[in-house]
């Protein structure tokens, strides 16, 4: 269980995290979602005591991180993959961490095996690919068999097989009753793994809910129309007060009306339809809508298209 109360971090003139309160509960994977610069990493670093909060506090199992009796036995964290001295072998890196918290060397071998690095255990971590470094970071997180796990962008650099593996791992860790808190900017990934969502934007919590409730509340389904008579159809729909948005060539997205209504309208005006389909809302749509005005670095619409 992770709890934050009034957690705040100010860097000079910039408020990175702004009086946030939240609770991350055991037994489910909780996704931590937000645009770049929203305060995700800063929050994660404050949970681990790497950065000191300007105000407020954050606790793990009721204590500040630095007050945990044997931190690695309670919290495992994957921050940036490169949190390793490149001159040390994977095995020695884990053995040093294990020693500091009284974890047995047998457990080191076990975790290396668990993440599939046994064969390269004697190699220096500096030569590792991003994927291998990520696995080593995950091994370090699992070392103390902790009840609370933090993963910052865990799928970065992993190959498809590795991504499937970590997805499964996170779900099984949560199923064992552990607290799993994972940040990602990859929304498809998040939609697949997280049951609960914590959305952060400009240092504030924008939503703290379940994945399905979040999508239902923040995005509506719409209809995609493909037609050779698109211009006429668009003006007809706009005249009827429907909100439309251009999509790829020859397509139009229509909001707030059913496919049946659009079809009837087109038939009455003798306009041809080549496609008429309902688009289910995605996490991405919901997220974009919610954070539209809290994105740190806006690209101009023209450049982005």
């Amino acid at each position: 269980m992770i709890q934050a109360q009034g957690l705040t971090k100010v860097y000079g003139a910039k408020t990175a995290v702004d009086h946030i309160d939240f609770e991350v509960r055991p037994g489910v994977v909780t996704g931590f979602l937000g645009p770049n610069g929203a305060g995700k990493s800063t929050t994660m670093r404050m949970i681990l005591g790497l950065d000191h909060p300007t105000a407020g506090r954050v606790t793990v199992n009721g204590r500040r991180y630095r007050d945990l009796p044997a931190p690695l036995r309670e919290v495992g964290a994957l921050l940036e993959a490169k949190s390793v001295h490149g001159g040390r072998t994977a095995y020695n890196h884990l053995r040093c961490l294990a020693k500091a918290n009284g974890i047995s060397p047998r457990r080191v071998a076990e975790t290396l095996d668990l993440v599939g690095l046994t064969e390269v255990a004697g190699k220096r971590a500096g030569g590792f690919s991003l994927g291998m470094a990520q696995r080593l970071g995950i091994a370090a997180a699992l070392l103390g068999d902790p009840g609370v796990l933090l993963f910052d962008e865990p799928v970065n650099g992993l190959d498809p097989e590795g991504i499937r593996w970590i997805r499964q791992l996170m779900r099984s860790l949560a199923a064992e009753g552990r607290t799993v808190f994972v940040s990602s900017h990859l929304m498809a990934e998040m939609a697949l793994t997280a049951e609960r969502l914590l959305v952060i934007g400009k240092g504030r919590i924008l939503a703290d809910t379940t994945m399905s409730a979040f999508i239902a509340a923040n995005a509506s389904s719409h209809v995609r129309v493909r037609s050779p008579d698109l211009l006429a159809l668009a003006s007809l729909l706009t005249a009827r007060g429907c909100r439309t948005a251009p999509a790829e060539r020859g397509c139009l997205l229509v909001y707030g009306v059913s496919p049946a209504q659009i079809g009837d309208l087109a038939y009455a005006a003798r306009l041809r339809l080549h496609e008429l389909s309902v688009v289910q809302p995605s996490l991405e749509d919901a997220f974009m809508r919610l954070t539209a005005d809290s994105v740190e670095f806006h690209a101009h619409a023209r450049d982005a298209a």
Binding site: P26, G87, R88
Partner: peptide, 26 residues
């Protein structure tokens, strides 16, 4: 929840870890 034992990490363990760290880089 907490898995594993709650044994408190000691200064001696931090020392052992730093000792190992010193000699495991070239």
């Amino acid at each position: 929840m907490s898995r594993g034992s709650r044994r408190r990490a000691t200064f001696a363990q931090a020392l052992a870890a730093e000792w190992l760290k010193f000699f495991t880089v070239r």
